[in-house]
Write a protein that binds this DNA or RNA. Structure first.
Lengths: 339, 339
DNA sequence: TTGTACGCGTTATCAT
DNA sequence: ATGATAACGCGTACAA
């Protein structure tokens, strides 16, 4: 059932039918109704591919995820993705989720996607400092929206949670619990969120006049195993911390396991915190003190931001999203020594 | 840079260029090389949309996930999805991930996708008994591949793990540990995997000559909260089980929490098992005895199966994938009473 | 081996 | 308000 057939059936021209279907004003009201009715009855559905070719727009957006990372598996990000995709679906937009391999040239993959005509815009998941992907997108003047902020980003192109504030709060809490030796197992250093979090941590430490050991600030990918190893090193050093901030709840779980293996009691004589409020976090023992944010809202805002760029919509955007600290059992007061 | 421009630049016709580019045999070797070289130099990229329109194929596959479920968040399934998408990408296929809302008519959503021309085939994530989606797809003779098996499914259309065997093993193990009162918090009853698992459970119980209480077989969506409530009910009944099989590791975590709240000690005086080997499972306490399977292999096989349908490829397919039992600390010998 | 011409299903421009 | 016609970029019979 093509528009041609529909036009023939109605005794009208393709053009008129097309206009009626697409809500143009210069079409007789009766005609429009007839067309709409016939389309309904005959089950006419415009062919999206043809629409794309003719209009030059694909009504499809892309997001490229590293296949090896656990980003896809990270509960918090998965929720953002679901919410993003949901809102887009409501606006008749598709989301293509592509993965990228280690061995692939990232810039090339992005370039391919940009020039493919497959997508009208691209979402960037975790921005990096001086992100080459953004340079590329800017250069090609290709619409994008990122989840992550760096100095200089335009309000039209980013959504982020206040990572700095989150870790400022978390660190402050540790300090108020009496901790002076606070380690921080941060995410990969190249991520903007890692920088923001580090700033929050440093700010709280400095405000309290605490000594900051550079050995206490570590970076790694968000994997339990990494946190496990790092915690082991930290706790077996000459100067072990009494509190460890982890970059996410998976890492917190690894840190907890590591501490227990070394004879510590997380939540009693060693404080550990996470981030993201993963599903399991409130059920593990000790339940993880963590940070949560409104994942659905973030996803939705990202979609809105993109639509504002692509359509003539003017959704009101909230660039920054606040976080909430969930105090549970994995952190605790500082103790003089092992129990 | 269109094929037209490229042809003009080369002083050839569009058709020749097209043939050279698409590897047809009836084109002069020198010509082909020239074309390929020029395409490379000028950075020519065929417009996928135009290809689609002309060929009638979209080189895109779809998968529809319920937005409210945690399927997207389930680590095991997310891995399947990544692997699926990876393999497809290698074959120059795209994967569109769509979500469906509670309030949407599922059949209509599938029908829309089928008739949209957006995708060449559809993946079905969790098959249900007498699945209406499959009826629809069959009726439209639309290519599909499912993850899940039911009697009558064609070898050309499904991949599954041996759920029956997995729960047979798991139940057998409980029996060998001395348990006679084994409850089973199963996934939703309409899923084929739930039926298969139940059969495995029942087979082991019957072989051992154990009484099967119908009250011990429960069904619920894979959420910690559900397992929490159900475990509470089970353990507070007149005849509490000494072992509880859960449909996944999230549920196991919920069951563990519930038992502990009631004063039991999971892994000591109450046995609990999971399924899926989620990331957290080996780090929680007690570490969850669970079932794992090769998620990457499953995703890849699904992709291969689809390609065999769509292209003239003949990948060798392994329909059934074996599971492996990971014995950890959450299950234990049966005890006479609470400690 | 190469070129011509048409079709794919739309949208958009220009008359009428 | 409506219709004819030309794009959009590619594949592909058919002709040469």
């Amino acid at each position: 059932m093509s528009i041609k057939k529909l036009a023939e059936y109605l005794g009208l021209s393709k053009s008129t039918v097309s206009r009626a279907l697409n809500g143009y004003l210069d079409v007789n009201k009766d005609t429009r109704e007839k067309v709409l009715k016939a389309a309904q009855e005959l089950g006419y559905k415009a062919n999206p591919t043809a629409k794309r070719l003719a209009s030059g727009k694909s009504r499809t957006l892309g997001i490229i995820l590293p296949s090896d990372s656990n980003m896809f598996v990270s509960p918090a990000f998965a929720k953002v993705l679901v919410s993003l995709s949901e809102f887009l679906a409501q606006q008749d937009y598709q989301l293509i989720v592509t993965t990228i391999f280690d061995w692939q040239d990232e810039t090339q993959v992005y370039l391919d996607l940009i020039t493919s005509g497959l997508v009208d815009g691209i979402f960037i998941a975790r921005t990096r400092c001086n992100d080459l992907r953004l340079t590329l997108l800017e250069k090609h003047r290709f619409p994008y929206v990122c989840f992550g902020f760096e100095e200089g980003f335009s309000k039209e192109s980013f959504i982020d949670v206040d990572n700095q504030q989150a870790f400022y709060q978390l660190t402050q809490r540790q300090i108020s619990l009496g901790h002076t030796q606070i380690a921080f197992i941060n995410a990969s250093a190249e991520l903007t969120l890692s920088q923001a979090r580090k700033e929050g941590y440093l700010r709280a430490m400095k405000e309290a006049g605490l000594v900051i050991e550079s050995d206490w600030i570590l970076h790694a990918e968000l994997k339990q195993e990494n946190a496990l190893l790092m915690t082991e090193q930290l706790m077996q050093s000459n100067n072990p911390p009494t509190s460890i901030l982890c970059a996410d709840d998976s890492m917190a779980l690894g840190a907890i396991a590591s501490c227990e293996a070394l004879g510590y009691k997380p939540g009693i004589n060693i404080a550990i915190t996470g981030y993201g409020d993963y599903q399991h976090s409130r059920y593990v023992k000790p339940a993880i003190t963590t940070i949560k944010y409104d994942t659905s809202a973030v996803g939705k805002e990202m979609a809105k931001l993109m639509l504002n760029k692509l359509e003539n919509t003017a959704f009101h955007i909230q660039n920054w999203h606040q976080t909430e600290m969930l105090v549970r059992q994995s952190d605790c007061h500082a103790r003089a020594s092992k129990i």
